[in-house]
Design a protein around this nucleic acid. Structure first.
Lengths: 214, 214
DNA sequence: GCAAAGATAATAGTATTACTATCATTTCTG
DNA sequence: CAGAAATGATAGTAATACTATTATCTTTGC
């Protein structure tokens, strides 16, 4: 995932925090190590010592996000008692961008979540997916999907498609947000910010309830 | 969408049919006009007379696909009587790759549908979406989503999220297929080829039925 | 049958991207 | 304070994504 751990040095942390800001500003496509180097006043060759290329950096960021999100999920589970409310909370965390920053680290979680929603699919939609997957680049994401799938199975043990449902929700929520900003004809006019969350929550419960009835 | 209509000349048609094969072989990322030129024995500068860049070509291909798919939908509707069966047929067309080629044109529809499932999101997930959308690059896709949304509304006029539902199904089916091939932990082990279709069909009817009950 | 127009081929050239390499300098650490 | 490690400064390469120019070939109207 990285050549040198960015968490282990000042420059490494600067690379992470500045890349999050820069990718947010200009988008991942326009983002280059040269431009990042210019903003942090370091040569691009120094950045290459941490990441082999910008895609590796994006994978690192998504992995960071999913690891952090798994923590958020675990924490949320401890303060919600009912299993139904747990699933609702999970869906909420997965479908809505982060709005408050803990400020405990050099990572701006609000901007990072924006990147995840807008660009994370570029981390695994590449010709190198298979090798990257083999070396564990997407384990954090998988772990989140597994964890929420387990809650679905707890609610309904015979449900056949828990992973399909959860990855549909995650990726769907990302795309619906993108559509609302760029291709509104592919989504629906919504009154409030929680519409996407509501949609996937309803979708989930209708699916789970109905199969229970069978 | 194009600088010169590829349908208007022998070279243009060769560009389309060969690009479909080449993109399928090496993937869109590795695909370049230089390589395409080499396979059709034409200089890349000739290809640039038809498309300003490879992304414009991809947009053309997706647009071709959705226009053709709208025709398939319209045709399917004429031979299915019940409204419920109509929606089922739509979902089937949207969630399953094409398996038979009409062979009426220079376009290999089977390979094209593979490209759409695997790479179409790269057509609109770019920094230029907004301008491209403004000049109508995605109208064919929108039209398909609108048409199926109308069927949903016919079944249930008060349904709030028809476009969200249909675009979730389309994009979801594409991604689940990709996941099953590259990141199986994000989807579920499936017995037959129709599992993705079944999942989204069930999901849809549970959603529609349940809101009817309210 | 031929001239003008239009399309394609052949070739060359440029800017940017995505790196790699080298060596000097700074900073850290025992 | 010596040696190691990290970073800075600079240069260079291959590939990509184009643009430009001129020559050749193919139509098509007359």
């Amino acid at each position: 995932m990285y050549t040198k751990n960015p968490d282990s040095s000042e420059l490494g942390r600067k690379i992470i925090s500045s890349s999050i800001e820069l990718i947010n500003e200009i988008g991942f496509e326009s983002f280059t190590f040269k431009k990042l180097g210019a903003t942090i006043n370091s040569p691009e060759s120094s950045i290459y010592r941490y990441f082999t290329n910008k895609q590796a950096l994006l994978i690192y960021l998504t992995s960071w996000y999913w690891t952090w999100t798994e923590y958020r999920l675990v924490f949320a589970m401890t303060i919600v008692a009912s299993i139904d409310e747990r699933l609702n909370k999970c869906i909420e965390i997965l479908t809505q961008p982060v709005e408050v920053d803990d400020d405990i680290s050099y990572v701006n979680e609000i901007l990072l979540s924006e990147i995840i929603f807008a660009e994370s699919l570029k981390a695994y939609h590449t010709k190198n997916v298979d090798e990257q997957n083999k070396i564990g680049c997407f384990e954090a994401y998988k772990s989140v999907v597994q964890r929420v799938s387990d809650i679905v199975l707890e609610i309904q043990p015979d449900f056949e498609y828990p992973h399909m449902l959860i990855s549909t929700i995650i990726e769907g929520a990302h795309q619906q947000k993108y559509f609302s900003e760029h291709l509104p004809a592919l989504t629906d006019k919504v009154k409030d910010k929680k519409a996407i969350n509501s949609f996937y929550t309803e979708l989930t419960w209708n699916f789970l309830k109905s199969t229970t009835r069978n």
